[in-house]
Write a protein that binds this DNA or RNA. Structure first.
Length: 557
RNA sequence: GGCGGUGUAGCUCAGUUGGUUAGAGCAGCGGAAUCAUAAUCCGCGUGUCGGGGGUUCGAAUCCCUUCACCGCUACCA
């Protein structure tokens, strides 16, 4: 049986999730997972936090917290945000807490080494004796040796644009404590990406079909692939395997190396919890698995080149990604989402005010699929009121209330005399019908959201055309048939909505008097005249509520 | 500086491997209907596809150039 393994980019644990992350990597993964599951497929969804790296240690020290609790704090915030938005994974873990992670990461190191893909190299680097650490370029400043500008960062001079070699910087100082660093030599391991590219990954990338916005990016990436260091001189991280001996002392795996391995570690962790410790191999080392990485465009090099290189280089039967549906960036109108500037919404707060499904729908319909896009409060409110309250919510309301008043609150029967006419009208004459799940499978999320609304509009045309309020007097039996048809349509609407708006879909499902969870229903696909009617006449409706209350633009905007 | 992206109707965006009169949603204008959360339905767009040049029988779609805005610049994740 084929399986789909869905991953969402691990959140770097030094800040909260904002809508850019959500629209880029998490919401699409959740929608995709739900849609495939409705279609009866076996799906595993994995995500979590990326906990290592210098940025985190510095931020934690600034905050006066130890690394582990600092990271745990952001991880907890991430879970809250997922809960608020109803984004679900089979496991959300963290690279510093997942039990199998350190060993598995070391195993990757050893296998890559044994297979000849690692190189050891000694270089000089700046070392701060006060902070007891080698300084990354961005943590050094000094005077530019080309133009004399001060301060110049360790990587680039803001004045003349020269690429700075930190070792040549005049009067270098540590950005953290301000003291002058010294030069020390250190040994590191490098991943031989050029070799991996030439052996396999280059051809694989060229032969693979990528999303259009990904394709261009990685092609020219291939031209100039560097060997990349995969170790660092610091304490916070995964220590090197014992097999490298004392040369590995005081060193850890570089954060980008261990981070993607987290996807595998978390899967292992989950399978251990489930009592099937070997089952992770069915997902990671089976030809039947379709591996899908949801990421933002900043992660394209890692997920299309580096991580596949690692998976291949381990030579342990790992699958390579089938799809990397990277999104572009989602900006806040007039700027970008930034945690530091306070122009990022507090998501749980936002959701409490406007509702999870409305938020999910708007993010889905404005997702940066092919180009950067933006979040606008005005458009959010407008979308909620026109597409959701107006087209979908109102369809449910006008049909169900009418039945409540005029048809005893039970699903009416379709009469044989009218069946053909009604089917032809709603299935063929009231407008094009699209299957949202089909779009979701193709990673066309915006189109999927649009399709749901379009299908609801078909229902609105049908009711306007049939005018059951007039038929009630002229031809009551036909009126009932039209209402029966509309109830069927609403049940399809609920199922079409489910992956994107699970809670609202369930609400509609219950209003129709249906039992169980709408997400447990098979994905509906497109209705066909012979088989599309499934409701039982006489079923009493549930309590009728307004699905999408109209929203107003806040004054403060 | 380098690399990359974007620039299509008032707004947000689609435009597949170049090909009939360049599309959607929202907003706007006109009309119909009144079951419904003043929610629905119908009709209405002469857009220099940022500017300029080129390739082609034919380009928003390929090439060159130019302007504007944006992102990244790899011991940053």
């Amino acid at each position: 049986m084929s399986r789909t393994l869905v991953t969402s980019a691990l959140l770097y644990a030094n800040g909260p999730l904002h809508f850019g992350h959500i629209a880029g990597a998490y919401l699409p993964a959740d929608i995709y997972t739900r849609a495939l599951r409705m279609a009866g497929e076996d799906v595993l969804a994995v995500s979590g936090s990326d906990d290592h790296g210098v940025a985190i240690t510095i931020a934690a020290e600034k905050a006066g917290e130890d690394y582990a609790s600092y990271v745990a704090g952001w991880n907890a915030r991430m879970r809250e945000t997922f809960a608020a938005l109803d984004i679900r994974y089979d496991i959300v873990s963290g690279t510093s807490t997942s039990p199998p992670h350190a060993d598995l990461s070391r195993e990757f190191f050893e296998r890559l080494d044994a297979n000849g893909y690692l190189k050891e190299r000694t270089t000089d680097q700046l070392y701060c004796a006060t902070d007891e650490m080698f300084l990354a370029d961005r943590y050094v400043q000094g005077t530019c040796y080309v133009c004399g500008h001060t301060p110049a960062r360790g990587d680039e001079c803001p004045s003349c644009g020269t690429w700075i070699d930190p070792l040549k910087l005049k009067e270098p100082s540590c950005k953290i404590c301000g003291t002058a660093p010294e030069t020390r030599s250190t040994t590191h391991w490098y991943l031989d990406l050029p070799k991996l590219r030439d052996e396999k990954i280059g051809a694989w990338i060229k032969g693979h079909e990528w999303k259009s916005n990904v394709a261009g990016f990685i092609e020219n990436l291939l031209e100039d692939v560097p060997e990349r260091a995969i170790t660092r001189d610091m304490k916070w991280g995964v220590s090197l395997p014992a097999s490298v001996g004392e040369r590995g002392e005081g060193k850890v795996l570089y954060v980008w190396f261990d981070a993607p391995i987290g996807y595998i570690s978390f899967t292992k962790e989950l399978m251990v919890e489930r009592g099937t410790p070997d089952a992770w191999k069915d997902w990671w080392q089976s030809e039947d698995t379709s591996l899908v990485h949801f990421i933002g465009k900043d992660n394209i090099p890692f997920h299309c080149l580096v991580f596949p290189s690692m998976l291949y280089g381990a030579k342990d039967g790992y699958v390579l990604p089938a799809h990397v549906p990277a999104n572009e960036f989602y900006n806040l109108k007039g700027g970008k989402f930034s945690t530091s500037e306070g122009n990022a919404f507090d998501i749980p707060n936002f959701v409490e005010q406007y509702g999870a499904d409305v938020t999910r729908f708007y993010l889905c319909s404005s997702m940066p699929e092919t180009a950067d896009s933006e979040f606008s409060m005005e458009l959010f409110i407008q979308t909620a009121n026109t597409a959701l309250a107006g087209t979908i919510g109102n369809l449910a309301q006008r049909v169900l209330k009418f039945i409540d008043k005029n048809a005893e609150g039970k699903i009416p029967a379709i009469h044989d005399d009218h069946r053909a006419e009604m089917d032809a009208c709603i299935l063929n004459e009231c407008g094009a019908i699209e299957d949202p799940v089909e779009h979701i499978r193709a990673f066309r999320f915006r189109r999927a959201a649009e399709a749901i609304v379009q299908n609801a509009a078909v229902g609105n045309r049908f009711i306007d055309q049939m005018a059951p309020w007039a038929l009630r007097k002229e031809d009551p039996v036909k009126g009932e048939s039209s209402l029966a048809t509309l109830c069927e349509w609403l049940s399809w609407t609920a199922r079409w909505m489910a992956p994107i708006m699970p809670t609202k879909a369930q609400e509609l499902w219950s209003m129709l008097g249906q039992q169980g969870q709408v997400l447990d229903q098979p994905a509906p696909g497109l209705p066909r005249a012979e088989t599309w009617r499934t409701l039982r006449a006489g079923t009493p409706l549930g309590e009728i509520v307004a699905m999408f209350p109209r929203l107003e633009l806040p004054e403060t905007e």
